Simulated scan of single mutants.
Amino acid sequence: MRDFSAEHRWLSINTITLDRQGDLAAIIEACARHGVTAVCPWRHKVAEMGLDRSAKALRDAGLALSGYCRGGMMVADAAHRQAARDDNRRAVEEAAVLGAPCLVLVAGGLPQFSRPGSAPGKDIAAARAMVAEEIAYLLEFAETAKMPLALEPLHPMMAADRGCINTLGQALDLCEALDPDGSRGLGVAVDIYHVWWDPALAAQIARAGARRLQAFHVCDWLVPTRHLLNDRGMMGDGIVDIPAVRALVEAAGYRGYAEVEIFSEQWWRLPMDEVIATCIERHKRAV
């Protein structure tokens, strides 16, 4: 396993970690000040700044990308399905302009939450079937754009509203059905927050292998967790054995960034420089 203790060259900051502290320009400047060499932008930050300006600012700062967040939210009723498809094609195009190595996909849950305005539904099996159909559709476009897609399974507590693909095994089943040998660029994003609990995690990471492992997201799980979305912990503050999970992904061949992605009301209240400095320190000793 790589030694992270002496430097942070393999640290990437997902911009959601600094979502309340500033715009993308401010995040880019702060990362440069701290010697952070990679980021993963969220689409709303890029939209605020403008796609071309964002791409130029990232290039000028010498920042690499570990991914682009996010496409997905694919489950919709008939009236909203084309809009969802169009939105995901735009996400692929944006990722290509930015030079991202992959577009992270969050599948979406039941239609009324995945695409607001859709008719309510309760059939999660139908939602999962639609995700498979929509990834197949998007993959054709992403192949043309040469943009890999990284499907991110979400914790089961988010199955209804954010993601009905809930285990790494489910995500890999889709990958193998739609892209059997991995040559079309369909893989997975492994986010510790969502998968740490899975008793099949070690076997599924090994199954994924280097070709499927396109992104690795780190944070921690707090006990108690006070909010289903916005109470992630900084690495080392919770109960996840993060180095053990990193050892699994690296044993499977992953050599990319450990991307810090923290949705947290607590950390959003702190100054940007303090959060980045803490990410660097924890990346060295807790990842």
Rank of each mutant, 00 (worst) to 15 (best):
M1L: 14
R2Q: 15
A6F: 14
E7G: 15
E7W: 12
E7N: 14
R9I: 12
W10M: 15
W10C: 13
L11Q: 03
I13P: 02
I13A: 03
N14S: 11
T15K: 00
L18F: 01
Q21L: 05
Q21E: 08
L24V: 03
A25M: 11
E29F: 04
R33M: 12
T37A: 15
C40V: 13
H44I: 11
M49K: 08
A55I: 01
K56A: 15
A61H: 01
A61I: 09
L63V: 06
Y68H: 02
R70P: 14
M73A: 14
M74G: 05
D77Y: 04
R81I: 14
Q82E: 15
A83C: 11
A83P: 08
R85C: 05
R85Q: 10
D86I: 09
D86F: 08
R90G: 00
A91P: 00
E93S: 12
E94K: 02
L98R: 01
L98W: 01
L98F: 03
G99D: 05
G99N: 07
P101W: 05
L105D: 02
V106H: 06
Q112T: 05
G117A: 06
G121K: 13
G121I: 10
G121M: 02
D123H: 07
I124W: 10
I124K: 12
I124C: 10
A125V: 13
R128C: 10
R128P: 01
E133V: 03
E134N: 08
A136W: 04
A136F: 08
A136C: 13
L138I: 04
E140R: 14
A142Q: 09
E143Y: 07
T144F: 10
K146D: 15
A150T: 08
L151C: 01
L154N: 06
H155G: 10
A160Y: 14
A160D: 14
A160L: 09
G163S: 13
G163C: 12
C164R: 06
I165K: 08
D173Y: 07
L174E: 03
C175G: 10
L178T: 06
S183C: 11
G185H: 06
G187K: 09
A189L: 15
A189S: 13
H194D: 01
V195Q: 07
W196P: 04
P199M: 05
A200W: 14
R211V: 13
R212P: 00
W221K: 12
L222F: 01
T225D: 15
H227R: 08
L228G: 15
L229Q: 15
R232G: 00
D237C: 11
D237F: 01
A244Y: 04
V245H: 07
V249G: 01
E250I: 00
Y254H: 04
R255V: 12
G256T: 00
V260L: 10
F263L: 12
S264W: 02
S264P: 00
S264H: 03
W268I: 07
R269N: 13
M272N: 03
E274M: 11
E274I: 10
V275Y: 02
I276V: 05
C279I: 02
I280T: 07
H283N: 07
